[in-house]
Each structure stands twice: as C-alpha cells, then as structure tokens.
Nucleic acid binder design. Structure first.
Lengths: 164, 164
DNA sequence: TTGATCATGTTATATCATCACGAGTCAAGA
DNA sequence: TCTTGACTCGTGATGATATAACATGATCAA
C-alpha cells in the first residue's frame, strides 16, 4: 500500500498529533466520556499513521502493544472515537481516519486520491447546505451524511498528465 | 427486514420496471455492452424488488433461477450494471439499487430513511457543484462522488413525532 | 475457422464486522 | 463497608461482504 497522508500538502505534523490529541482529551473530559488506554492509543495510532486505516490494521497494532487480539477490541475503540467525533469512518475505503478538527461540529467531506491514496478532510458547509435543500425538496430530513469524493489530488494529476 | 421502496411516495411502479428496463436495453445496445441473461435478470430483480439489495440476496435469487451459485456471479452482474449506469452502489448499506434514470448522466444522491429503510434517489446537481468547488479549493479534482444521507422521510418523521 | 476477447462458472480465500458471554473496574448510595 | 448497576475489555465463535485464480464455453471479426 502506498503512503496515504491525510492532507495533500506538507504541513505541521506535530500539530496533527499532539495538539489534536490534547483537544481530544479536553473534549472527552468535558463530556464525561472515558478516553481509556485502548481508546487513547487507538487515536494516537490514527494520528501517527496520518492516513485512513482499516480496523484490522488497527487491531494488529493494538495487539502488538498488549491490548486484546480480537476484532471487537479494534471496532469498539474506533466506534468510540467516531461517536465522539474524534475520528471518522471512510466508507469507500472501509477505513477510519483521525478527525483533524475535533470539537468543531462538522460532518466532513473526504477527498480520496485514487493515485496516491491520500485522504483529505475538506470543509463541507456549502455542500451540506445544498444537500439539505435537495433532501428537503424530496421530503426528507437529513441527520447524517456521507460525502466522499474519489479523484486526483493536484500532485497526482500533474504526474498523470506528464506521463501521457 | 422491512420493506424498502426506492421512493417515499406512491408512484407508477410499472414505469420503474418496464420502462427503465427498455431504456437499459437501448443504452446497452448503443454502447456495445452486452446485456446478457444474468445481467438482464439481475437488473430485473433489482427493479422488481424496488429497493436496495445486497449482493448475496441477489445471488440467492439468481441461483434459484438456474444461474451460478457462487458470489462472483452476483458481484460481476452488479458490477456490470453499476459500470454502465444501470444500477448504483449504496455504500452505507453495502447494497445495490437499480438506477431510476439510466442514460441521464448523474451521480446520484441517496436518501436513506433509518426508520423504514426506504432509499430514494434525489437530484444532486447543486450538491455536485458545491462539492466540486470545495474540492477545487483543496487542490483536488473530483471524478466520482458518494453522496448518501441518512435521516427520516416525512412519513416516518411524522410517525416518530406522533409517538412521543 | 481460427484466434482474440469476453462471459460464466467453479473452488478457495480474503476481508470486514458483529454476537454472546464472563471477568474486572468504578462510582453512587444504602 | 458492601452492594448494585453501568460500563469496559477481553475472549471464542460466527456472520457478512468481497475478491483471487483458474477452466470452460460463447461471440465475433478477420
């Protein structure tokens, strides 16, 4: 599998890990949610990997660190993170990614590069507005939305164009 | 499992099946795609069921009619239909649904009612526009999009409100 | 009619996700 | 202090979804 960073451009990785983790802890405390060792470690692993990761890869890593070895261990930790907005599920990839903006209410738009497998989380407010309008016209009230785009990031698009 | 029609309101079911199938055939012919017996039957089954259907349920039905009994039989037929715009994949449900507007280029927006499991295909042009803009700002070119909303159709919303 | 291509079927396996159960933890209140 | 109830985490087992790899047969253009 190729490298799959969570944003297309270079960025301050320290922010992604440390700062986000810190905010996650504050959030959990504030809401009475228990960021237990497995859960916290799962979030750290997602942040360190800095890409979308399948539940079984997560399980392998957790097991290697002395946590349980059965699928529910990983699924439960990931479910907790998703429930509390600390991670997101990327359905197209059957995978999970750390949320880069915990706390800020947002249902993200994922941009998935089919060439380098990078997954970026983009602001989605206008998309949600359009979505709500379309749904309303059809007699439907949206509670949660899955917005995932498959395509090419600029880097890979340039590379592909050059190759032809 | 509950009934899961593809639109929230009553409608002319004959149109959904007969007419769509007819257009599908025309489309296939036009594009040199071979709508073979399994493929055609798979599309008919989707149209008749008139709801999202998992690959294994499709497989059961195909097998019962004398087609192959192994998963690839269903997956290949469904893959063909999706590739040619005759069906769509609903990722949130790990299921497939017949396209109600074959030929009209559209990447659909699915509205999934969490109460009655109905799945409706809504017009998504404005959503795509917003999506493209958001992606462009992030340095990304969209090729395909998954747009799925989970929520309540008006009927179920009224029922839920009445119950409380 | 021959060769290229595509379709269909098979067996086997990979991958993703949940169920059901029991032991340990922890805090609120009798 | 001692229950009690909610929650957590681990287990084995199973369920659900999807693909790989390969053989046979159909289709069609040259």
């Amino acid at each position: 599998m190729m490298q799959s960073p969570l944003a297309f451009e270079e960025h301050d990785h320290h922010h992604c890990a440390g700062d986000v983790l810190e905010r996650a802890e504050a959030l959990a405390a504030e809401r009475g949610a228990r960021l237990t060792p497995v859960r916290r470690r799962a979030l750290e692993i997602l942040l360190e990997a800095h890409r979308a990761m399948g539940a079984y890869e997560m399980l392998d890593r957790l097991a290697a660190e002395g946590f349980g070895k059965q699928p529910p261990v990983a699924y439960r930790a990931l479910e907790f993170l998703v429930e509390h907005g600390l991670a997101h599920r990327v359905r197209r990839l059957n995978a999970f990614a750390a949320c880069m903006h915990p706390g800020e209410a947002h249902s993200p738009l994922f941009l998935i590069c089919r060439a380098c497998n990078a997954v970026a989380e983009a602001p989605a407010a206008p998309v949600h507005a359009a979505l709500g309008a379309a749904a309303g016209a059809a007699g439907f009230t949206v509670e949660r939305a899955t917005l995932e785009a498959l395509g090419l990031c600029d880097g890979c698009r340039a590379a592909e164009a050059a190759q032809e």
